[in-house]
């Protein structure tokens, strides 16, 4: 599987790394969520950020999108430090980013067509015929041209996510972030979603960041993996390196073992004591 693409880029790149995260820490009030994160995603690469639920993956994505500001450290996207941009500059940068939310986050009062056309209408003055052609192209790329007149409530979970993907790439972004793209999908939709993410990354010359806990599906498609546990990066490498890793956490995660460094039990007082036998 190709690691990078030879897609033609309109502008000479500022650096080969589209996303660079340096010594990033983030805390909500007094709860430290991420600590000392260092991470890079090269242009054209498909990078996965993995970890168990609640480890700070989604927070990391929000930091890259500028919805949260780092407590310490820097997030650099296309040469710009996201946390230090003013409102206008941040919105200019976001026009070149796409984001796929966990359940699609389609606008429920608009048809599939209008959802995909949304950004084109908001940010461009293109004539209606051109918007129509662009929307149909994007919908065709995700295989849902025939569903253009449906409302989001009429779509299955997998279809909704593909429409959201078409919407995310409507303005041909340089970076697309996927928040749990595989969660809650049946095995067929799962395979389709995985192939689609890989294919779009290659054909459109995108850089993709996938936040996921679906190990098997993502190891099949990604170029590089970062493992996060309790707010720190515990392992990183190519899918093969991850599969062969003998780090206890990675081993537990990749092979889905119940107990290991990540305990089955949430921290609690001793069982006997809580049931009232402790003082006997």
């Amino acid at each position: 599987m190709a690691k990078t693409t030879d897609a033609v880029r309109p502008h000479p790149p500022v650096s080969d790394n589209l996303v660079e995260i340096r010594d990033l820490s983030f805390a909500y009030a007094d709860r430290l969520v991420l600590q000392g994160i260092n991470m890079t995603a090269r242009r054209g690469q498909l990078v996965a950020i993995m970890g168990n639920s609640g480890c700070g993956k989604t927070t990391l994505m929000r930091l890259i999108g500028g919805q949260l500001k780092p407590t310490l450290g820097k997030v650099i996207v296309d040469g710009q430090s996201v946390g230090e941009l003013d409102f206008q500059a941040l919105y200019r940068l976001r026009r070149r980013m796409g984001m796929l939310f966990q359940f699609g986050a389609l606008f429920t009062d608009m048809s599939v067509f209008e959802n995909v056309a949304f950004q084109l209408r908001e940010h461009t003055d293109l004539p209606e015929e051109m918007i129509r052609d662009l929307v149909l192209m994007k919908l065709n790329a995700v295989g849902l041209r025939g569903a253009q007149d449906l409302m989001p409530s009429e779509l299955s979970g997998g279809m909704a996510r593909r429409v959201a993907l078409a919407r995310a790439i409507a303005l041909d972004p340089m970076l697309v972030m996927y928040d749990e793209p595989f969660a809650g999908l049946d095995p067929i939709s799962l395979g389709v979603a995985g192939d689609l993410i890989r294919r779009l990354t290659d054909t459109l010359g995108l850089t993709s960041l996938v936040v996921t806990h679906d190990v098997q599906e993502s190891l099949k498609i990604v170029d590089y993996v970062y493992f996060i546990s309790e707010g720190v990066i515990v392992a990183q490498g190519t899918p093969q390196e991850i599969r062969d890793s003998d780090l206890p956490y990675v081993h537990q995660f990749v092979h889905g073992e119940e107990d290991g460094p990540v305990p089955f039990h949430y921290p609690a007082p001793a069982y006997a004591e809580e049931l009232g036998f402790g003082h006997a």
Binding site: G65, Q67, Y91, R92, R94, R95, M97, G98, M99, F101, Q102, F103, A105, L106, F107, T108, F118, Q119, E122, H123
Partner: peptide, 17 residues
């Protein structure tokens, strides 16, 4: 359902839109 977040990420201000 994260539609407001999606607007922000699409560089559309939810207050304005």
């Amino acid at each position: 359902t994260e539609q407001i977040s999606a607007l922000e990420m699409m560089a559309v201000d939810p207050i304005a839109r």
